[in-house]
Design a protein around this nucleic acid. Structure first.
Lengths: 196, 196
DNA sequence: AGCGTATATGAACAATTGTTCAGTTCAAGA
DNA sequence: TCTTGAACTGAACAATTGTTCATATACGCT
């Protein structure tokens, strides 16, 4: 049997990416087989290769899409005003992009280790661009005296890791509403950066 | 060839655990094969089974040892005095245990997902014990008005994830000395919890 | 109605996986 | 010196891995 009714490339393609995203997020790249992904999609393993040249590309494309999305959203964000307002805007945008949409389905950056050196390098560059934006905010705040951040690079890394930390514990079916979590992180980051 | 001079169980045993620890930390459980571990130890794969019944047990024993160590250290820590002093003591103990010793070689708790349900449950119980100690500190601080933490469970999860976040970016050969990083985290967590 | 092609099957592949085990080696005790 | 047994090898195993490909199907087009 092949080509069931209503089953086209436009349907299966996204299904493959969604399944891979969910499984990579949950079990990690090495812990997921192509057959698991195929089974999730409702297809045989061989069919996946109509949508990706190989497993590595599947991971890379998903991570690239993620990073591109993050940078894009950030560009659309209004990062003007006083440092406190800027950092709040950054935190909310970052949080919403990572947790919003497909709730909590987001391949952790830990999986970067599974990339080819060449692929890794390309993503690493995009990440630097993203973090550079945060660093600029922190630097401005430090200069104006609003923030206590003598080492802006260190503070940037820490803030990013704080924000991504939510993926480690948040469960969509948990007790605390996502909006409350977002507000909490806004408060935490603002205070963590604040001058004493 | 077998049994080289000076090569005993007392030597190889720890070597196996060390290699597994390092590799699991770096590549994740699923991304490491028994043959890789064996090669790191300088032994054939079959020999590993003199020291562990199987791969799953190897991971579980390491994680159990880790959790046990963390709880032990915490019990030895003086958690008296005002909340600010208590939280500082907690942060320093937590940080030193996770980052000290074998610098940054620490299996991330993400790897818990690779455990058998039974094994997972057992570790989860220990983790609750550990986090309960932090929650008590936060609760006391909230009650005294020193901390802004209306939801102590949420704050606990967030603080833990903040602290563990250091594993995501810290490199032993990096620019910032470990002691400075520790001090930075002490400051960040204290401020993040502080009443406004 | 029938052709062409996008979409999928399912079997096969070489490599690698965790694990077992009969056999080998060598240090220490008798 | 000889024996014993702990420590290890190396080959083997069944299962699973990523990937390929000849084949089959059924939809859209004419």
């Amino acid at each position: 049997m092949a080509r069931k009714t209503g089953s086209h490339s436009d349907i299966t393609g996204p299904k493959v990416r969604d399944a891979a995203m969910r499984l990579f997020t949950e079990h990690g790249y090495a812990g997921v087989s192509m057959r698991q992904i195929a089974s999730e999609v409702g297809v045989q393993a061989g069919a996946l290769y109509l949508y990706t040249p190989n497993k590595q590309s599947l991971l890379f494309d998903l991570l690239l899409e993620q990073m591109r999305g993050a940078v894009e959203r950030l560009k659309e964000t209004d990062l003007s005003g006083p440092p406190e307002k800027q950092i709040e805007a950054f935190v909310r945008t970052h949080f919403q992009f990572h947790m919003g949409g497909r709730q909590g389905i987001f391949i952790p950056y830990t999986e970067l280790r599974n990339l080819t050196p060449a692929n890794y390098k390309r993503l690493e560059e995009m990440r630097r661009i993203y973090e550079r934006e945060l660093e600029k905010i922190i630097q401005a705040g430090a200069q104006s005296g609003a923030f206590d951040a003598p080492d802006s690079k260190l503070s940037t890394l820490v803030v990013i890791s704080i924000l991504n930390g939510v993926l480690a514990w948040y469960r969509p079916d948990g007790r605390v509403p996502l909006q409350d979590v977002e507000d909490h992180y806004v408060s935490v980051v603002k205070k963590a950066l604040s001058a004493t």
